[in-house]
């Protein structure tokens, strides 16, 4: 496999895990705009442990998951007291605090970043992405998943139904943070070098977009969203220059409108995002869509009165 495709697959797998980490709290109605901060915690925990002590990758990644998960649970208690746009701002601020702390930390390389030994091949991330996908599908099928979705729809009624709303929200936030930490650890070891500039606000926004545009009602959403939005820019990378060449041969270089070249990738991505929000505000994959696509339906139990 070429290095290009190996890189794409690694990033795709990491983005899927990252998206699931954001999806679980979002499915319970908690928008997390601090994804990059949690991912940075996972990446730096694993990277630092690996660079400083030369521990095996399995240990460093597990360490990254645990550290991020624990931090997720700890900050969930204060942070989940806020709601709506304030929660979004609180998570965003958390990511900025993490970025600032790492930037000014000498052991973590500051602005220089750190080189991470213990390279992992693309298939390791892909296997993890598969496992995480199965795990999240399982989670969403449990009573925990049911209560997450119930809280998303109506917190007060969930409480009256006997759901411990705070505990479920904290657990969702913590599990999500742990998965995000896993994506960070895999990133550190896949690309052998991390710098805090790579975990910026744009990363947090993108991963939230994967989840929101993919759909938050089922576990299919983040999978489809992350895949689509990771692969689309890559597809446009070759399609756009070809289109440009085609238009240039038709109209010549002197056209009034400059034909789109590769730099238009993000214009198209942005336009697509706006269109999605207008036409499919609940995301690409919705609950009703999955229902309709299910060819096998559980046989009706045929209860008679």
């Amino acid at each position: 496999m070429s290095g290009y495709w190996a890189g794409i697959l690694s990033i795709l797998a990491i983005n899927i895990i990252f998206a699931y980490g954001i999806f679980i709290p979002v499915a319970s109605g908690q928008l997390n705009l601090g994804g990059a901060g949690f991912q940075a915690v996972g990446a730096y925990s694993a990277g630092w442990l690996s660079a400083s002590f030369g521990l095996p990758v399995s240990v460093t990644i597990a360490f990254g998951i645990i550290v991020t998960g624990v931090i997720g649970v700890l900050i969930a208690f204060p942070i989940l007291r806020t709601k709506g746009v304030y929660l979004v701002l609180a998570t965003f601020a958390f990511a900025e605090v993490i970025a600032g702390a790492i930037l000014s930390s000498e052991p973590l390389g500051g602005a220089m970043g750190i080189s991470v030994p213990g390279y992992i091949d693309w298939y390791v991330s892909v296997i993890f992405a598969g496992l995480v996908t199965v795990f999240v599908f399982y989670l969403m099928a449990t009573r925990f998943g049911l209560t997450i979705r119930a809280i998303h729809d109506d917190e007060d009624v969930s409480d009256l139904m006997g759901v411990s709303v705070r505990n479920v929200k904290v657990a969702a936030f913590g599990i999500g943070a742990a998965l995000t930490g896993l994506s960070g650890g895999l990133y550190a070891h896949s690309f052998s070098y991390i710098e805090i500039q790579g975990f910026n606000a744009l990363v947090s926004i993108y991963v939230l977009l994967y989840v929101l545009l993919g759909g938050t009602q089922t576990a299919w959403g983040p999978l489809v969203g992350a895949t689509f939005f990771t692969l689309l820019p890559e597809a446009l990378r070759s399609v756009l220059p070809a289109t440009k060449n085609f238009l240039v041969t038709l109209f010549g270089e002197t056209g009034i409108v400059a034909p789109p070249d590769e730099s238009w990738r993000f214009v198209i991505l942005g336009a697509l995002t706006v269109l999605m929000m207008v036409f499919r505000p609940e995301g690409l994959v919705t609950r009703t869509m999955v229902e309709r696509l299910q060819f096998w339906r559980p046989v009706s139990r045929g209860v008679t009165q």
């Binding site: 009573r143 049911l146 209560t147 979705r149 119930a150 998303h152 729809d153 109506d154 009624v157 969930s158 139904m161 006997g162 759901v163 009602q217 609950r287 229902e291």
Partner: peptide, 16 residues
């Protein structure tokens, strides 16, 4: 819960 199916709403009622 509008996004849950009928049977899921009932299963939520069983929470306690």
């Amino acid at each position: 819960m509008p996004h849950l199916s009928v049977v899921e709403n009932i299963m939520l009622g069983q929470q306690s």
